[in-house]
């Protein structure tokens, strides 16, 4: 689904991202972990053609993202609050995205019914603009906005941050369901190793812009990641 070749991004002579090759097959739930400045958001921004690659390219379903816009109809994302329109109510925001993605009001209403317990009664019908919601509730609205219009690729940057525990658990169920049952390719980044190992089939560790590890998630993954980030030598290195 998503192919990355020789991708790099430099600011001046500082390389912030350098990925020789990365392939993400359709329907995979893909996790990106790394410390601040590892290049996670840069990678997502490149995927969305919000910044220009210095070298290389990304194809999304065979489409070069920086030369054609044809990837937009089947790709959706929530990166940060700049994906929300502050002066709309959540409902208006969802309807607006629906209009952009070919879903009418009835479609949106029925989709929203599925997210009732995710919203926990704090999003819909509040007569509040998005800018007046709390950070956590803004995030919920943004994440659900990214699920509108049956996208084939969903990109979520730090979706678990700022969410309350109940919503985190619900979000994990939603993501698993989308990837496993509906064949949606989901890319998420997270600082929370537990969440990401629980949700993602595959986890890539970025460190200073380079791919450090590429792991198919197993029972041992969490330990492996914890060791890596704690700076301890991993079992793998010991074996080598």
């Amino acid at each position: 689904m998503i192919n990355t070749t020789n991708l790099s991004k430099k600011y001046g002579n500082q390389t912030v991202l350098n990925i020789e090759s990365l392939e993400i097959p359709k329907g995979q739930s893909f996790g990106l972990v790394g410390n601040n400045g590892a290049g996670k958001t840069t990678f997502f921004s490149l995927m969305l053609d919000l910044i220009q690659p210095t070298t290389g390219n990304i194809t999304n379903n065979g489409i070069h993202v920086n030369t054609s816009e044809a990837w937009k109809p089947f790709t959706s994302a929530f990166i940060d609050e700049s994906f929300l329109i502050g002066y709309l109510t959540p409902e208006e925001y969802f309807y607006f995205i629906g209009e952009l993605r070919g879903a009418n009001k009835a479609d949106i209403d029925s989709l929203m019914a599925n997210f009732d317990d995710f919203f926990h009664g704090e999003i819909l019908g509040q007569k509040k603009f998005l800018r007046d919601l709390s950070k956590g509730n803004q995030k919920k609205a943004g994440i659900v906005g990214a699920f509108i219009g049956n996208p084939e690729v969903v990109i979520l940057d730090e979706p678990f941050a700022n969410l309350d525990p109940t919503t985190q658990i619900r979000l994990k169920a939603i993501i698993k369901d989308l990837a496993n049952k509906q064949g949606v390719t989901i890319l998420i980044s997270s600082h929370d190793l537990i969440h990401v190992t629980e949700v993602c089939e595959r986890i890539v560790v970025l460190n200073k812009g380079e791919i450090e590890k590429d792991i198919q998630t197993s029972a041992a993954t969490l330990r492996e990641l914890e060791n890596f980030f704690a700076g301890r030598s991993t079992t793998e290195r010991e074996m080598a």
């Binding site: 921004s45 969305l48 053609d49 937009k72 700049s82 994906f83 995205i97 952009l100």
Partner: peptide, 13 residues
């Protein structure tokens, strides 16, 4: 400008 990234990555010609 507050949501320009969204406008540019959404399905908007």
């Amino acid at each position: 400008s507050e949501y320009y990234s969204m406008m540019m990555s959404q399905n908007i010609p």
